[in-house]
């Protein structure tokens, strides 16, 4: 039985397998658009390894966190499309 983690993404409570990155959890739930660019275009991750900064989300109130580098933790609160 794989262990799971429950967190909140944009107000919705979801349960994912342990070792899921925040970027993967967001994409599986809502699709690839994670942030809004300076010209208000929707953007999603391209590099998956912390280079491009296109997967930036707010995690537990800290803005501009690279969601591809961070694994889901119990009780984590994630907000997307902040900038």
């Amino acid at each position: 039985m794989p262990r799971t983690v429950t967190l909140t993404i944009d107000g919705a409570s979801i349960t994912v397998a342990e070792n899921t990155t925040v970027a993967a959890a967001v994409w599986n739930l809502n699709g690839p658009d994670m942030r809004v660019s300076v010209e208000r275009q929707s953007r999603g991750p391209i590099c998956g390894m912390g280079i491009c900064h296109e997967c930036r989300v707010t995690i537990d109130g800290r803005r501009h966190q690279r969601s591809c580098l961070i694994h889901c933790q119990p009780g984590m609160e994630v907000a997307t499309r902040h900038g």
Partner: peptide
Amino acid sequence: VTGVGGLQALVKGGL
């Protein structure tokens, strides 16, 4: 639209 290794990394992360 992602990178090639980029998509692989995201999939390894649970995508």
